[in-house]
């Protein structure tokens, strides 16, 4: 497991990601005392009050646990650079990962007809806006998928 920061120079969420054997994954942490897993990584366990946690790979596939569509443009600190007029609604959901941890994420579709609780989802990167200097702004997201490894 390598921290991927150097591969993704313009990605503010690079520190949340890891390059595992099955590709890009989410970087979390696991409590060495009680085994509870967290995303994003943390140094405090809110389950057993421990403070000894080690990095772990949360994975890159899961099932949609809940979803909504963000229909209005968020106020600052949202930084997509869009105008109110040009704002494009986006999907948001929680994806349940193999460990049971649910990860909040943008979704690649904002069409309610394409979203259903329980459907398989895969991690990807999406462009969600651009900076003042024209550089694209990217973040992690989940996309509906038909392939899913193992039994989630």
């Amino acid at each position: 497991m390598n921290n991927n920061t150097s591969l993704l120079p313009h990605l503010p969420v690079a520190h949340l990601l890891t390059q595992g054997t099955s590709g890009l994954g989410l970087l979390g942490s696991k409590c060495s005392q009680c085994g509870e897993m967290y995303f994003p990584a943390t140094d405090s366990c809110t389950a057993c009050c421990g403070s000894d946690l080690a990095p772990c790979d949360i994975g890159n596939q899961g099932r949609l646990w809940s979803w909504t569509v963000q229909a209005f443009m968020p106020k600052s600190p949202y930084n997509s650079g869009e105008t109110e007029e040009a704002f494009q609604p986006y999907g948001v959901g929680y994806v349940q990962m193999p460990s049971g941890v649910k990860v909040e994420s943008r979704l690649t579709t904002a069409d309610p007809a394409e979203l259903a609780i329980g459907m398989p989802m895969a991690l990807c990167l999406v462009r969600y806006g651009q900076r003042v200097d024209g550089q694209p702004l990217q973040t992690f997201a989940f996309a509906p998928t038909i392939e899913i490894e193992g039994d989630l």
């Binding site: 503010p12 969420v13 949340l16 963000q70 968020p74 600190p77 949202y78 930084n79 997509s80 986006y90 948001v92 909040e104 994420s105 943008r106 969600y128 702004l137 973040t139």
Partner: peptide, 10 residues
């Protein structure tokens, strides 16, 4: 900051 910047903090 990323949590607010990417539009998840509402």
């Amino acid at each position: 900051d990323w949590y607010g910047e990417t539009g998840l903090m509402l």
